[in-house]
Simulated scan of single mutants.
Amino acid sequence: MAGHSKWKNIQRRKNAQDAKKGKIFMKMAKELYVAAKDGGGDPEMNPSLRLAIDKAKANNMPNDNIDRAIKKATGDLDGANYEEVIYEGYGPGGAAIMVELLTDNKNRAASDVRHGFSKHGGNLGENGCVAFMFDRKGYIVIERSTTSLDEDMMMLSAIEAGAEEMETNEDTFEIFTTPDQFQDVKKQLINEGYELATAEVTMFPQTYASLSDTESEKMSNLIDHLEELEDVQEVYHNAELNDVE
């Protein structure tokens, strides 16, 4: 992964999400629901739920909303029954795309995603057609402007806590972990006083696809369309977008 900064693409997604807080809260509620449904409502005994709670709080989701989503999953409140679904396909220029959804209506979700791909020059593929091109990793970003500590010291702290690697860029330090080590590394860095710009378990492409300006614009439109869909939680891709501001 060395040599390629992920932060601008992450920022692009987050900036788009920040403009739609209501929808983000709905996404977080679904994620909390599924995590609690699968592993129970106690975050101390359910790492997936603990991660979902951290993510919800990072997005400023109110505690009452978090509690309500968990109670729906554990049967204390009535609620919809959500399923996790992943669709895979190709965007303009052959870029690989994975779309993660939580839905209470798989037929609607499939139709919406298929329409989005078709409308913006993509093709929905079979399960597994691009999944092998991505790796799930813990990802932590520390912005240089928030710390005056030594780079070597920061790297040592991250590695000692279980990080796999750290990339140094002009504006950021990007730290990568296995999903299992993510919480340990995050906790260690917070305890040592580092301010984390982002901390999440997410998918990263193993290689990136170069697109022309026209293909890049079409790809951006496809991503925006998919992210607007009611059931979509995350959109992952391997496109090297020409403009991610």
Rank of each mutant, 00 (worst) to 15 (best):
G122D: 06
K30T: 12
E240W: 00
A110V: 05
G40I: 07
A16T: 04
N242R: 14
V34K: 10
S5Q: 09
M45G: 03
A29N: 05
S216Q: 01
D135Y: 07
Y87C: 06
I175D: 05
F182K: 06
I223C: 07
D78M: 09
I175P: 00
E44N: 15
K57A: 14
E174R: 06
T177F: 07
W7M: 10
F134Y: 06
Y139C: 02
L102M: 09
L77S: 13
G89S: 04
E100C: 02
R114Q: 13
Q233W: 02
V201R: 12
K14L: 14
V99R: 02
A95L: 04
F173R: 01
H237V: 13
F173S: 01
G193W: 04
D224A: 13
G121V: 04
L49I: 07
E160S: 09
E84C: 02
G79L: 05
N15G: 11
I24N: 08
K71E: 15
D112Y: 01
L241Q: 07
R108I: 03
H4Q: 12
V34M: 11
I142Y: 10
N15Q: 07
E240I: 09
N105P: 14
N238R: 08
N107R: 13
Y82R: 01
S157I: 03
V113W: 00
A158S: 15
Q11W: 04
D171W: 00
H237I: 13
G121K: 09
P47N: 09
E31F: 03
K14V: 13
L101Y: 00
G75V: 14
Y208Q: 12
V130W: 08
M166I: 14
D150Q: 13
N105K: 08
T172K: 05
G22A: 14
V85N: 00
E228S: 15
K119S: 11
N9P: 04
M98T: 13
D224K: 09
M28E: 12
G121P: 01
T172V: 13
L101K: 00
G94I: 08
Q17W: 00
M153A: 10
Y33P: 02
F25L: 10
H237Y: 15
E143F: 10
M166C: 07
T168D: 07
V235T: 11
S48A: 11
T202R: 10
G79T: 09
D243I: 08
K20P: 00
E245M: 09
D76M: 13
P43I: 11
F176Q: 00
E31S: 14
G138N: 06
R68A: 15
M45S: 10
L196F: 12
F173D: 01
Y82H: 06
E217D: 10
E215P: 02
R68E: 15
D213V: 02
L102S: 03
I66M: 06
D64C: 03
E31G: 07
K8N: 12
R50C: 02
F173A: 04
A36C: 04
K72A: 12
E170G: 01
A69E: 11
S212N: 02
H4A: 11
L156W: 04
A19Y: 01
E228Q: 10
P179R: 09
S118V: 02
E228C: 08
T202Q: 07
V130Q: 03
P47D: 07
A69Y: 05
G162M: 07
S157V: 05
I223D: 06
S145Y: 08
M28G: 05
N15K: 05
M26C: 08
E84L: 08
A36Q: 05
N59S: 12
E170K: 14
